[in-house]
């Protein structure tokens, strides 16, 4: 458990600095760019700081087979966007929609407290993309029946 800063006897650099892992994701983001004809799209913004993330998924047999992102935001937003695409790729929709902001933050070896809200963006965009896919699919099967 994290001790409050004023009782801590060691310096917790993660209060000020990004982890090497996050910097690596920010510098070399995976799955970056727009996707043509996605099966689902999640577009979310962060009303606090004004950042926006678009997340695109391709689904086959209830599994995320391809995933891409575009992000207008800070290094934490870009880094966590990249990492969530790697985490979600190949998962079933149910598995993917269980990814939380904490999972995302843990995957990049933690985030400074003030940057935790950036990982919310990634988790929300993924959920929204899955919702979008299910809505569209629902409509299609409605039309069939």
């Amino acid at each position: 458990m994290k001790v409050p800063w004023h009782t801590s006897i060691s310096i917790d650099w993660s209060d000020w600095m990004y982890s090497d892992k996050l910097i690596e994701e920010f510098r070399n983001p995976k799955n970056m760019g727009k996707m043509e004809n996605p099966d689902g799209v999640g577009k979310v913004g962060n009303p606090t700081c004004g950042d926006v993330m678009y997340l695109y998924i391709k689904v086959n047999d209830d599994r995320i087979v391809d995933i891409k992102f575009e992000t207008f935001g800070c290094a934490a937003a870009i880094g966590t966007s990249s990492i969530i695409t790697e985490m979600a790729k190949g998962l079933t929709l149910d598995e993917a929609s269980k990814i939380t902001k904490q999972d995302v933050a843990d995957e990049v070896d933690g985030l400074p407290p003030i940057k935790m809200h950036c990982s919310v963006l990634a988790a929300d965009a993924l959920k929204l993309a899955i919702e979008d896919y299910r809505k569209k699919k629902g409509k299609k099967s409605d039309m069939k029946s």
Binding site: P29, K43, V44, G45, P47, G50, V52, E70, T71, I78
Partner: peptide, 23 residues
């Protein structure tokens, strides 16, 4: 700019911001 969803204008910026998190 390559990473950013906006290239020509801020198109859906406001509507994306309106998708506030529910948690």
């Amino acid at each position: 700019r390559n990473i950013s969803p906006f290239k020509e204008d801020f198109g859906e910026y406001e509507s994306a911001l309106a998708h506030e998190h529910k948690h």
